[in-house]
Simulated assay, not measured.
Amino acid sequence: MLGYAFRRVLSAIPIALIAVTVCFFILRLAPGGPFDGERALPPTVLANLRAHYNLDQPLIMQYFIYVGRLLQGDLGPSMVIDGFNVADLIRIGFPFTLTLALYAFVIATAIGIVAGIIAAVNQNKWPDYVLVLVVMIGVVVPNFLSAALLQLGFGVHLRWLPAGGWVSGSIAHLVLPITVLAWPHAARISRLMRGSMIEVLGSNYVRTARAKGLGERLVLARHAIKPALLPVVSYLGPGLSYLLTGSLAVEQIFGLPGIGKYFVQAALNRDYGIVLGTTILYMFIILALNLLVDLVYAWLDPKVRYN
């Protein structure tokens, strides 16, 4: 198991380098720059700024300078937010983003698993139809649209919950953002769990357990749930990464103090350092989550062996 994990880490290094390279050149070749604004800077000031951030160098030299600093753990400075480097902004905003995503992840995973089991046990009955309808809404409606609808309904018209903003320690300000993030994730989990559970309930060993006189609850608890979780576990790593990246837009919509507001503004202002630093952060998170999912998958399924 440890040898497999080590090989996966080594195999991820070229992937990470390719991703960094592609993101770097896409950003630098896009029209505009961090110092293009409504009011043009004096040529001398602009030349000094470009020299300070190595933007006066050939593009390939800028790339090698960036990769060299990255290998030393330096994500570089922000070109728009004065006095902050990328690592500082990540330390400020990422804990809130991670907390928001983890809350949504835990809630959505629990709801999705339970809903999938209920739908599978009641296949082609009214609970199954209701859950399938709710799932389809969660999958089809994009989070920016559901966020606007929830803000309008519960925040503006009904005034049951805050429509946006953040007050430290306030759970009420997190209800709508977590709902927006958790709904699609719970919908996908429930679809996976339903399909997997239906397949497991029709397997030979489950029919044998029922023939021995075991009750339905014992059959589910001892024989059905664990193997049915395998497709769900495979999705959990990418699912958490989707929540982390999806939270960037949700934070911007609800005005939350996560890394999303820095990332969106940086993308609009061509702040190369923040966009690249955030992209690299999420890339390593996704690689780590995929490795963790593989290890958990091997633990759940004894037939899987990594030699």
Rank of each mutant, 00 (worst) to 15 (best):
M1T: 14
R7H: 10
V9D: 06
L10N: 04
A19H: 03
V20M: 09
L27Q: 06
E38M: 13
V45S: 11
L46N: 09
L46W: 08
A47N: 12
L49G: 00
L55W: 04
L55S: 03
Q57V: 07
Q62D: 04
Y63I: 07
I65L: 14
Y66A: 07
Y66L: 10
L71K: 08
G73K: 01
L75C: 00
P77H: 03
R91S: 12
I92K: 07
F94T: 03
T97G: 01
T99C: 00
L102E: 05
L102H: 09
V106D: 13
V106C: 15
A110T: 15
A110M: 15
A110L: 15
A110N: 12
G112Q: 01
V114S: 06
A119L: 07
V121H: 07
N124R: 10
L131P: 12
V134Y: 15
V134I: 15
V139C: 05
V139T: 02
P142N: 01
N143F: 09
S146W: 02
Q151F: 08
G153W: 12
H157F: 09
H157W: 10
W160F: 13
P162A: 00
A163L: 11
I171S: 10
L174F: 08
L181F: 08
R188D: 07
S203D: 13
V206Q: 08
R207G: 14
A209H: 12
A209K: 06
K212A: 06
R217D: 08
L218E: 14
R222P: 04
I225W: 05
K226E: 04
L229I: 07
P231E: 11
L240G: 09
S247G: 01
A249D: 00
G255F: 10
G258W: 06
K261Y: 08
Y262K: 10
A266S: 09
Y272C: 11
Y272F: 10
G273R: 12
G273N: 06
T278M: 03
T278C: 05
I280G: 14
L289K: 09
N290K: 03
N290T: 06
A298V: 07
K303F: 01
V304F: 03
R305D: 12
